[in-house]
């Protein structure tokens, strides 16, 4: 038992030292270096209405890494989100319809009938709002929920089938909208890693700017 007392004493000091090192010294060091060398990224990659990185939350309209829920017909729609992208109106917040910041998905299993019902309902709504588009042209990413509920991207195909509708409701020409999509398409790294994808928020900021001109 004498031995155990010795071990216990060592353990206590060991915990103290490791907590200082791992819980304080390490995150503080990392925060210091990140805030000095990569300030915008370390603070959430916020962007302003012009699409430029900013560190001022008052100027920011979103983060280039996070998707947003868009309701206007003149805007591109992102993927299905179980948390509505943490986007809410004043009324939502006051009535408690917005439960607070979250992340996640519906977690439907492949065989869950709710999954099928959700996709069919969304598909009908989408086809109605986008005449000329057939079900076979709608890519799976547009009607399936993202894992985080915050996915900022859609596939190039999902953007392409929305171009006509966005052009019509925004009053911009289809060429202009096509160009906006092209400019906000992110490519595979080295042509190998990842997927081709379109940043929905950046597209919509560009659409809004073009409409204001």
């Amino acid at each position: 038992m004498k031995n155990f007392g010795k071990i216990l004493k060592t353990v206590c000091f060991f915990c103290l030292v490791m907590m200082l090192l791992c819980s304080f010294a390490y995150p503080l060091l990392l925060t210091g270096v990140s805030q000095v060398t990569m300030q915008a990224k370390a603070n959430g990659s916020l962007i302003d209405a012009d699409g430029n990185l900013t560190t001022d939350p008052a100027e920011a309209v979103g983060s280039e890494l996070l998707g947003q829920n868009f309701t206007g017909d003149c805007f591109f729609k992102g993927r299905v989100s179980s948390i509505n992208y943490n986007t809410y109106t004043k009324e939502n917040a006051e009535s408690g319809a917005y439960p607070g910041v979250a992340s996640g998905s519906f977690n439907y299993g492949s065989s869950n009938p709710d999954l099928k019902a959700r996709i069919e309902e969304d598909l009908d709504m989408f086809l109605e709002a986008h005449p000329g588009v057939t079900a076979a042209q709608v890519p799976a990413d547009l009607l399936t929920a993202s894992g985080s509920g915050l996915d900022p991207h859609i596939s190039p195909q999902a953007a392409e089938i929305q171009i006509a509708s966005v052009a019509e409701h925004s009053g911009l020409s289809e060429e202009t909208v096509e160009k906006i999509v092209e400019e906000n398409t992110e490519h595979k790294v080295l042509g190998i890693f990842g997927e081709e994808r379109v940043n929905v928020l950046k597209c919509n900021l560009a659409v809004a700017r073009a409409m204001a001109q």
Binding site: S105, I119, L123, P139, A140, D141, S146, G194, R197
Partner: peptide, 25 residues
């Protein structure tokens, strides 16, 4: 089940996945 709704599932099963990673990653 998703294939049966008629939409294009060429990119694989995307429910619960992120576009930037796709099915492979």
């Amino acid at each position: 089940v998703i294939g049966a709704t008629g939409i294009d599932q060429d990119m694989g099963s995307m429910e619960g996945k992120e576009v930037r990673f796709g099915v492979d990653q």
